[in-house]
Nucleic acid binder design. Structure first.
Lengths: 333, 333
DNA sequence: CTGTTAGCGCCTTCAC
DNA sequence: GTGAAGGCGCTAACAG
């Protein structure tokens, strides 16, 4: 273990005061050219590494953004995370991640450790903290919510219009000629799931098609639940020519269940998912899906946090969705 | 913005000194029961939040573990990350992640910021820093390398035996009766890829089958490269009855390419991948693959780091691989 | 432009 | 057991 080198050391070596060193380090005040280079030289020579803790303590800024993800490993959240990382990597700030695991308790304590670490801002990606907790947070720290709504703080919230997205997906199938369209919904309490379902209902209504409850199955966003959903559908004996799943993972599970029953996609039934996760393009057949601009949402989140920290005006933009047409749903019915 | 509450505040409120507060906070010295409860009460009432920076500065420990991942979003690395998170969540330490993006430069600067943040230990998951850099690191900080080897520091390295794994996968196909087995390799510079390829060669040799270079294609671990690999194979006009891909993503791409050509899996060609990523179980047909205990490796990494920090003896265990048999490769040839 | 002087919030001797 | 004092490394006024 080598002893640490501090600005004191390099001050001595460059024959200046600590302050001057600090100044060249932060470019906060002009410094005489000559001294500056001497300082830089000393820093390099001694392999100086500013102590982030000391800086944070003294300056009051930690230069870190806390990011709470849910279940690292889920394609959508991963993509958002990527966006945050890349947007932040161009700045002085670095992100520190904790995993909320879709668990209220864990999420709360995770946020607490983040706060203890003096993060300068907080990005919550997904999550299900009660609104009053969130309000407390938003009032004390720069905050951005991704894929989550908070009454009265719309400008801190980043998400797509899930109703419209659900409507579009369903409409797409209707335009193909389908009349019997099943929907595999997400977690019933989940806002996104509810809205996508609403979009589905609205589209049907617009088309003058009565909603058939038998065509509605609850899932929980996992592949496994997609499998079960299709089996349940089949067990009910309803006929359907298309399925709209509330996310790609469930679509993937559904596809497997169909395969096992010898039902072909898209010849016998069309399938459309949601999220455009990377693997979807490589399913057999490739999955038609609704794309959210997740990466863009991640970098927007980073930007907005930075604006808040800087005390600037900010306003969360709204993000458009788009249907990515692939073979799983191209056959006219 | 509410003002921060410090141990000073709670000391006043509890009629004790800062030191006493510090003591109940860290349980470093016995404190009179009565005062202790008073302190605890005050902390709760004022919603006290110890400043991690101040603690780090004063105590010299940051209670954070730096984790360098490559390309968050890749199933294998994600799983390892999950393991780290869950193992660490049971301790006082929290992980801070940075993304190396498989880029030597980015990786180096990422590690630098981690070091600036005074992490108490470092876990590198994948990555391709030169050995001499790594040696410098391992000598100055507790370090664990996952899926990477470093001459002379085997006890800091966590990985499976990729030669044996490649051999097993190939052997599995041989046992099924296949003789013409293609291999889609990973990045040629990548140690894991090389070893898996070596395993493949060894298995063929053991079986007395001459290596056919036409059955060997280079990929780069991406789905896309799997597609290209199969097309290249087909263009060469070699006949093959099975494919061993060096990871699941390439297997996925390969499967898509086969599908496009109307080649059935497993009826015409058997397919086996590597990593057992979650989506593999839901491919059509489900993918046979080689499973690495990635989560376990992650938590082992966390454990070993902690042991190093504590100054204890430590020794990286070795991890077994196992073939997960699914429909993509079950047909005897 | 530059050196000096105070802390930032906490932990850690050290005497009591 | 407990309080007082010093310092971790750095930034932020302050005078010059």
């Amino acid at each position: 273990m080598k002893k640490k080198v501090t600005i004191q050391d390099i001050a001595r070596k460059a024959n200046v005061s600590k302050s001057t060193v600090s100044r060249v380090l932060n470019k906060t005040t002009p410094v005489e050219e000559k001294k500056a280079t001497a300082v830089l030289a000393a820093m390099k020579q001694l392999n100086f590494r500013p102590n982030a803790f000391a800086r944070g303590l003294a300056g009051g800024q930690s230069m870190t953004i806390g990011v709470v993800t849910q279940n690292i490993g889920s394609p959508f959240y991963d993509a958002v995370t990527q966006g945050v990382i890349s947007a932040l990597s161009a700045t002085e700030y670095s992100p520190i991640f904790v995993d909320g695991q879709w668990n209220k308790e864990i999420e709360a304590t995770s946020i607490r450790t983040l706060l203890n670490r003096q993060v300068d801002g907080l990005i919550l990606i997904g999550g299900n903290l009660p609104a009053n907790e969130l309000k407390k947070l938003v009032e004390s720290k720069p905050l951005v919510l991704v894929a989550q709504r908070l009454e009265g703080f719309e400008k801190n919230c980043l998400s797509v219009d899930n109703v419209e997205a659900g409507l579009k997906a369903t409409q797409f199938l209707l335009d193909l000629g389908h009349r019997e369209i099943a929907h595999i919904a997400g977690i019933p309490e989940h806002e996104d799931a509810i809205q996508r379902l609403n979009g589905y209902k609205t589209a049907l209504q617009n088309a003058g098609i009565a909603l058939n409850p038998k065509l509605l199955v609850d899932g929980n966003f996992s592949s496994q639940s997609g499998v079960l959903a299709v089996e349940s559908l089949l067990a009910r004996g309803v006929s359907f020519s298309a399925i709209f799943a509330a996310n790609d993972e469930m679509a993937c599970g559904a596809r497997l269940a169909l395969y096992r029953r010898g039902i072909r996609v898209p010849e016998d039934v069309s399938l459309i998912g949601f999220d455009n996760q990377p693997a979807s393009a490589f399913m057999t057949p490739p999955l038609t899906t609704v794309a959210q601009p997740s990466r863009e949402m991640g970098s927007a989140a980073a930007q907005i946090i930075l604006q808040q920290i800087a005390g600037e005006e900010f306003q969360a933009p709204s993000f458009p969705v788009e249907i990515v047409v692939r073979e799983s749903a191209i056959r006219r019915w």
